[in-house]
């Protein structure tokens, strides 16, 4: 039996985490959550992850800093930045550090999950 793909979702809004967990689990993903940057760093070390969804504004650190940390060791891991609103400045900054994409909270999350699935498939190809 193939293992379920695991996604780490980092957001300080617990209710939002509940919703995205339901949506991802309905798409057959295993979901790991973190409500701050410190937890996220811990879970990045202790789980075998296939993708990360990262809120840009975290209470203890900036999501971009976590993205930078991930990119130091893993260039291909799909990392999507979560944001409450679409801002060209934020998009530009995240693109600079090779984010795979964005999840605008008010957008249709099923569409976003389809994008995540495509990104995971693409990352698999690089893994060989």
């Amino acid at each position: 039996m193939t293992r379920k793909r695991a996604i780490l979702v980092v957001d300080d809004e617990v209710e939002f985490l509940k919703m995205i967990r339901l949506r991802l689990e309905a798409n057959d993903y295993e979901v790991v959550t973190a409500i701050n940057g410190a937890q996220a760093k811990e879970k990045l070390k202790s789980y075998k992850l296939d993708a990360v969804l990262l809120d840009i504004m975290l209470p203890d650190m900036n999501g971009i800093d976590i993205l930078k940390t991930i990119r130091k060791t893993d260039k291909n891991m799909p990392v999507f930045m979560i944001t409450a609103f679409s801002s060209p400045e934020r998009f530009e900054l995240a693109n600079k550090f090779n984010a795979s994409g964005f999840i605008v909270k008010t957008d249709d999350l099923q569409v976003e999950v389809n994008n995540i699935t495509s990104a995971i498939r693409l990352a698999d190809k690089f893994k060989g």
């Binding site: 209710e15 919703m19 949506r23 309905a26 909270k105 099923q110």
Partner: peptide, 19 residues
């Protein structure tokens, strides 16, 4: 936006009959 996105997704989840 954040509370709105939570309400929006909650409704979507029920409409998509996930639960």
């Amino acid at each position: 936006r954040t509370p709105l996105s939570i309400v929006n997704e909650g409704i979507n989840i029920i409409l998509d009959e996930i639960p």
